[in-house]
Design a protein around this nucleic acid. Structure first.
Lengths: 238, 238
DNA sequence: GAGTGGTCTAGACCACGGC
DNA sequence: CCGTGGTCTAGACCACTCT
């Protein structure tokens, strides 16, 4: 297992915090002490501590030191790019994915605008619903460039497309833009979701970019109002 | 004007990108070249470039170089901590804040749980609505520790409390946690908002922490369904 | 004044991409 | 192969906090 020094230090400190080696509001050893303990330079320690800070594990204070934060409170990925599978595991509720549509289409006007493709390009369209506690609560509509994802099967869609893309296809997802708003339910929502009488859904649009800044996926995720929840952890830097 | 070297380099490159000195998908000079140009070390250049990357201005690619991203697309603060005033300025629609309640209260059970205060503490309670295009669309309920914010006036609340806190009181806001979900409308919503027939609102709960990791503000922001919109920009790092 | 984190330097080696 | 960005080092000076 190859890992950078600063990453291994980061992971070591994370696990020590999680195991209660340091408790919330405890002071961490100083950067100089940590540099000695881990037999490395201070800058490397600082890289590890900055990661801890960005991920909400510690708070650094100039002239004072670094304190451990209440980790349970912030135990979620830093705003977004969570796949449904991770989410389902976190929630510990049995969840199931049903694939309704899986086909290659030509982009219409709407997709051409969002995916920056031409008429000649072929696009994967995947429509899936997510069943949690016996109810179909989320409707996911994914669109991928076929040139990025040449093969896609029902089995892959039932598992996790993200996992397939990152681990099998080795495409590197770099950043994503999310938009959230509320929309009236559509016929498609009525067809695939258990709406429970609600006439609106929360829509999360997700634009996913690869390492070279090319937009390769556009996803629209439609959530039943009462089951939607989003958590965001933002650190003020400048 | 005192500024760090890496910050001034960051701001210089930002302004050059904004002025079109480099266009989207242009390659930036290499880190070594920039180090020469700015007469500094490579590590300092790297700090500036990492900032640019985090803020969505550039994309770094190992072995290749850094390219400029389409800045218009990502021109918003990186997920959150936006005050209403900034938002109103960005939207360029006339907006007005109406202060409905401004008082010092003793914390009830709910607040004690969220603000981590005791019965003896005094809490500012501020209830305001936001009027945009002639309609009351957002209801904001803010709660502050009185020990952090000893004085609060109607005029301040009508302007921007954040601005007052950061610029006048010099309190440093460090990080915030947001939760978003949909809730049934309450009597309070009906009283202060133009609900336009909607029977649900989008609730954004905001927990704001200071530099020393103490929670000092709790805000509940209730948005009319059709007017709610949230944008988030997330970069994948590890 | 002693100790802390924040910045900065001038070097080094590495992994990756393209030629 | 060379140039790129990624990691790492051993020092230095600074601003800040506490005593």
């Amino acid at each position: 297992m190859y890992e950078n020094k600063y990453l291994s230090i980061y992971h070591d400190i994370v696990s020590k915090i999680r195991q209660g080696h340091w408790k919330p509001y405890d002071k961490l050893p100083s950067e100089n002490e940590l540099a000695e303990q881990y037999e490395t330079s201070r800058e490397t320690i600082r890289k590890a501590l900055n990661l801890l800070s960005e991920h909400g594990y510690i708070q650094k204070m100039k002239g004072k030191g670094s304190i451990v934060l209440d980790v349970g409170k912030y135990d979620f990925p830093v705003s977004g790019l969570v796949s449904f599978k991770e989410l389902a595991q976190k929630m510990k509720t049995p969840a199931k994915t049903i694939v309704h549509e899986l086909e290659v289409i030509k982009p219409g006007e709407y997709l051409k605008k969002h995916l920056h493709v031409t008429n000649k390009d072929e696009i994967w369209k995947v429509v899936r619903s997510r069943k949690i506690d016996g109810e179909h609560i989320i409707l996911d509509k994914d669109f991928f460039h076929k040139k990025f994802v040449p093969v896609l099967t029902r089995a892959i869609c039932e598992d996790s497309i993200y996992e397939y893309i990152e681990n099998k296809l080795k495409l590197k997802i770099s950043f994503a833009k999310k938009e959230m708003f509320v929309d009236k339910v559509t016929d498609e929502d009525r067809k695939y979701l258990d709406l429970n009488g609600y006439d609106h859904v929360v829509v999360v649009k997700n634009f996913v970019y690869l390492d070279d800044a090319s937009l390769f996926q556009f996803t629209e995720s439609r959530h039943r109002l009462d089951k939607f929840r989003f958590v965001d952890f933002a650190r003020r830097n400048h």
